[in-house]
Design a protein around this nucleic acid. Sequence first.
DNA 1: TAACGTACTATGTCTGTCGTAGTAATTATA
DNA 2: TATAATTACTACGACAGACATAGTACGTTA
Lengths: 114, 114
Amino acid sequence: MISSDVIRGYNDTIILSLLIQGDSYGYEISRNIRTITNEQYIIKETTLYSAFARLEKNGYIESYYGEETQGKRRTYYRITPKGIEYYREKCKEWNLTKNVINKFVKELDDNGSY
Amino acid sequence: MISSDVIRGYNDTIILSLLIQGDSYGYEISRNIRTITNEQYIIKETTLYSAFARLEKNGYIESYYGEETQGKRRTYYRITPKGIEYYREKCKEWNLTKNVINKFVKELDDNGSY
DNA sequence: TAACGTACTATGTCTGTCGTAGTAATTATA
DNA sequence: TATAATTACTACGACAGACATAGTACGTTA
């Protein structure tokens, strides 16, 4: 299980990384995260939508309504240049953080032993 | 800068990893974290002591007073078998989490570029 | 004697995650 | 044909870990 305290603060980055591939909407992003991680990480709906709100408030993404003629209209999200910049910074930060934590946590082999 | 949202939930693990090397106390652990990470991560005092309280409450560490004849008496901490077990689990979790986040975050070279 | 380093405790704030619940439309199933 | 499942969200509130701020207490050094 991935604890939410660890992934905390990286949900925004995960979402941005998917929006870099192209515009998307809530359900699709949720599905993508699930499949990309082989069901290892399933983002909660509330976590996802509160992340959208935060990202938009910060100017990292923009939203617009889809053109669905039937069914409920989707809200699509598009990453902004500011969002791309933020994503890059978070990538750098992640590499730093990973190295820091790796100094204290043992690497495990495929059997989960060390 | 290491964001606190990332390290969140791993402060406990970092502390336990140091206590596995031997009993210690607040200030020493704080210094060790600073030097091991080459000043890249400096744990806040309040974060450290609230982590001690949490770890002790959960039975992962035990405390006892030092034998200092002069100066303020230190509170030493000792890891328990339960704490060692918890540390192992967090190591496994970290390796999982690292792989999940790595799927969305680009690896950077030494220049911070990708 | 005053500053600095060591070694903490107390209190309260903030933020991201998440539990719970509800709304609303479409599509599949019994 | 009813109902369950899937898609696509919104609202509200609780919780926990990190941290800001402040204070206590003792020893050593300038």
